[in-house]
Design a protein around this nucleic acid. Sequence first.
DNA 1: CATGAATGAGGTTTCATTCAT
DNA 2: TATGAATGAAACCTCATTCAT
Lengths: 227, 227, 227, 227
Amino acid sequence: MAAQEPEDTARRRAPRVDAIRNREAIVEAASAVLAEQGTAVDVREIARRSGVGMGTLYRHFPKKEDLVHTVLRKDFSEWAESARQAAVDAEDPWAALTAFYEQALTGYARHRAIMENFSLTWTVPDLEGLQQLRRVIERLCAGAAGLLRPGVTVDDLLLLLVSLGHAVQITDDCRPQMWNRLLRISLDGLRAEHHEPLPADTAPGTRPPGPDREVRPSGPSHPAAGS
Amino acid sequence: MAAQEPEDTARRRAPRVDAIRNREAIVEAASAVLAEQGTAVDVREIARRSGVGMGTLYRHFPKKEDLVHTVLRKDFSEWAESARQAAVDAEDPWAALTAFYEQALTGYARHRAIMENFSLTWTVPDLEGLQQLRRVIERLCAGAAGLLRPGVTVDDLLLLLVSLGHAVQITDDCRPQMWNRLLRISLDGLRAEHHEPLPADTAPGTRPPGPDREVRPSGPSHPAAGS
Amino acid sequence: MAAQEPEDTARRRAPRVDAIRNREAIVEAASAVLAEQGTAVDVREIARRSGVGMGTLYRHFPKKEDLVHTVLRKDFSEWAESARQAAVDAEDPWAALTAFYEQALTGYARHRAIMENFSLTWTVPDLEGLQQLRRVIERLCAGAAGLLRPGVTVDDLLLLLVSLGHAVQITDDCRPQMWNRLLRISLDGLRAEHHEPLPADTAPGTRPPGPDREVRPSGPSHPAAGS
Amino acid sequence: MAAQEPEDTARRRAPRVDAIRNREAIVEAASAVLAEQGTAVDVREIARRSGVGMGTLYRHFPKKEDLVHTVLRKDFSEWAESARQAAVDAEDPWAALTAFYEQALTGYARHRAIMENFSLTWTVPDLEGLQQLRRVIERLCAGAAGLLRPGVTVDDLLLLLVSLGHAVQITDDCRPQMWNRLLRISLDGLRAEHHEPLPADTAPGTRPPGPDREVRPSGPSHPAAGS
DNA sequence: CATGAATGAGGTTTCATTCAT
DNA sequence: TATGAATGAAACCTCATTCAT
């Protein structure tokens, strides 16, 4: 209504160039900071590293959570995609599985916020990236059907990824590639020559009803002691 | 001033009864709270559950860190000991190894602060409990020498423990015992019938000097981008 | 430089068409928004509803206050005028007074910003609209001279308007027309059959010098207590 | 459990003396500040005037709202009580009504936060103080039954109080006692010699359903124009 | 010596105003 | 000239730590 451009209506106003640059700077800085320090970072640190003011940051991402989610969605997707690609490029089904884990663990497992989120939400299939990841693993499972130990599920492979991802997080700074040894061990343990059944996963969905947490046979009781 | 004066001791001991009881109450409450909520917990929560005031708590432990360390040392030791005992009670070397992991993961892996700390400090052999744990694993390794895949180190087994411990943390609430499947897989992967050498752990001590973190082949580089 | 040069004017006018349209759009949107939400509203809300950018808004009105004042002057004047007209159309002096209040309270008393401002500035006869209003009331007073209780002043009638305006603001949403009952009561109280003199308005101009606020006989003193 | 006092268990720990002093200081300062500036004040201003730190303030009142409510409840109750007492002390029913309004308006009507809240919540009979006030007015109504104009309701008298309270707020600084003239007018308008019925309060409960706000006969439409 | 109230730096979020495009 | 992105000073609230009682 106000301020009409004579014949340029089709062309969108240009000045978003810097806005886009800023948004990207924010996301990039946030990605770096979140990777380094996890989601507990001070928003100011992100603003400082992006070179923008707090207001700019909050213009693009009204809540800290919004920024974190945006970054995680992006990084998580890229992560899943890079791992998928590594699997696709492999020569045989088992090599695909191996390459998948290697790429996944090499590429992003040091991203603290991703691992944080992965750990917190791996059972909640709401995240796009997580779904992607699960689909990749499903395909790998299908492809390596005869080679995989019977009874191994997609959830097992996903949990293995989280678990090894954590190992990467805590070793990669001081012992790069040490996690690779665990990976070999686990992959070997996944092969078909192991015939014993895996222990039943008693609660496929959620916690089973019944007396709460009587899992621990001999450990001390205080972690469960209410007060 | 004097280290131990018999007649002084009598006068001093009376008030210390309370002090000792308080200290124990604090440590016990802190253990429960730290197990449930991790080290990010509010100190007040600990004081509340101990039934002591903040001042008392801070008299015994001048910094939150001091309390946390005290608790962790104790719980970590108990943890190591319970796992050790489970191993000792086993019938054969491999059963000992299995029992060790089962007990360790069943008993304390839900202790959030322990796992936090374990993850942070597992390379720093300053903690008493960690040393204990390492000694237990050393003995298990020695005992199961012929059964263990060649090349497996104590550090591997320790890292496997951290890694599976994390899996316990994130699965035990919604999928109890799911981690047990990962444990079987890993233990099978540890058996001697796997003959391939494990990949070299290139950095036995700390990060090697040189170009920082060029580990990642294709992942984006921002996590390493300092600023 | 030159005040009015015919041929310059032609060149200048072209761009100003937009400017004028924008200015009007801003004022109109601001009027609506200020009426709804009062002066505490976010400037962005006004820009959004005007369909102009922040820059344009601030070009026309360098400070939020400028825009608010402009809107209030205009709306206040229209308000005064509509009330005046209602009074003029009435058949007799008392009906004029009644019609004046009815129109004033019906027409604009829900305009939050107007009432806010009316309350804040009713003693400061700087505003044009307020002067208008006062003139209307003066005329009504003069017309209804014999019918009005002796001693009633223009200020009384003005304050009555503010006071009832507030009643409208707080009742009109949940109890429409309830304020009308208060209006009847007040108008009846204004009639000449009441012979007692009104209490003296001790300070016709501003606060009298002297001990600060010793008005309150028995109420607690903290509202006046500085600290 | 911890730290038992030998035989003083019945006596409560003393050191709350300063806490109580602080709490009172906070409430008192808050009362003053809220009276002066309304509920939009900066919490820091209250902390500063109380002479306590932010933490202390937030220890006693975890949310700003808690503090505001506490102060308002107290001041509102005191207000209602002082007005009630003034009415009780009066010689006859009409004098009681008069004294009630005079005291109410003299004592607290300058308390901005009270009036803010009164205006916002006068239809919501949740507040204790409001209930008190309503009860006082009910009794006054009953007592002055024959003297009050027929058809006058408790809600009318309550709204009159809000309305005149607003008049006090905006006049008392520059024209003390001017509101008293409005009070006389209104009280005279409330007397029984006025026989015309008051206009019906069409919506006793809430807004009637139907086309929204077609109340305004000739006023401009923008205040209602949503967007 | 125990208590728990007090402290204040630091975290997230909002909004009037300015400025590059 | 119009745009709307950028700015940064508050505002609210939390929590490790200290200190008066």
